[in-house]
Design a protein around this nucleic acid. Structure first.
Lengths: 121, 121
DNA sequence: TAGCACGCTATTGAATTCGTAGCACACTAT
DNA sequence: ATAGTGTGCTACGAATTCAATAGCGTGCTA
């Protein structure tokens, strides 16, 4: 039995189960976004290939996340391994802006650190 | 001492600390996205107001998330309570597409359930 | 001095995650 | 048939994280 957040049911952050809060509950778990991201970028991957791609994920957690993402309808198991569904691809697309911001974030931090080195310019 | 993922350092999913993986590590924690979302939508909120807005978050976790989000530079404490920074606002904007997808997701699930009721149309 | 609201911490127990080992199954080559 | 390999996946104990509640220290008001 897997406990997966579903929009419409009570989830963390919303007793009414507003879709965005259900999404946050589902994706706000360790590795959830990373697995979806990796699977979207590196095409169909077997369980072990996916595990390798995630570098440090344990099979237990990977299995949990896969079950959750499959229940949510974001991921499915094909002949060549796991792959994202059409809906999962949409989620991936929705994550792209976050990637852009993360780059800006990294640059902001890099500047902060170089500023520290020269005692605040 | 707070352990916050930072792009460039080793984070979950990437030893090299790729920005997106650092972002996933930071936002992929319980309530992280929910707090940022709530704060972005409901303007400056005091600690307790924010806690109420999140319905079921405990002060310990809220405090942790706030510290992490402040360290990341997404949130700051102003005169009228906590509010998102410019960078935090960008993250919120980047989360908007996810909100749209979550609605589509909710509709897909609603259809699945009504389909179940009438034994697959 | 007694309330009260603020941000926040301490504590204890539950839930989640981690890391490792290994199972059951299928396919292949010997 | 038997050994080897790769598959998805599970079990287990330890470590980490989270939850729920109580309460601290401060500043304000009366």
């Amino acid at each position: 039995m897997v406990k997966v957040p579903v929009p419409g049911k009570s989830v963390r952050g919303s007793k009414s189960g507003s879709p965005i809060m259900a999404m946050f509950d589902l994706l706000g778990r360790r590795w959830a976004m990373g697995v979806l991201w990796t699977l979207s970028e590196q095409g169909p991957l077997t369980f072990r290939a996916l595990q390798d791609a995630c570098e440090t994920i344990s099979p237990a957690v990977l299995n949990s996340r896969i079950k959750e993402l499959r229940t949510a309808g974001f991921v499915e198991l094909g002949d060549n391994g796991y792959l994202v569904t059409a809906l999962g691809a949409e989620v991936y697309e929705a994550l792209l802006p976050l990637s852009r911001v993360s780059t800006a974030w990294a640059e902001a931090i890099a500047q902060l650190e170089s500023a520290e080195t020269k005692t605040t310019d």
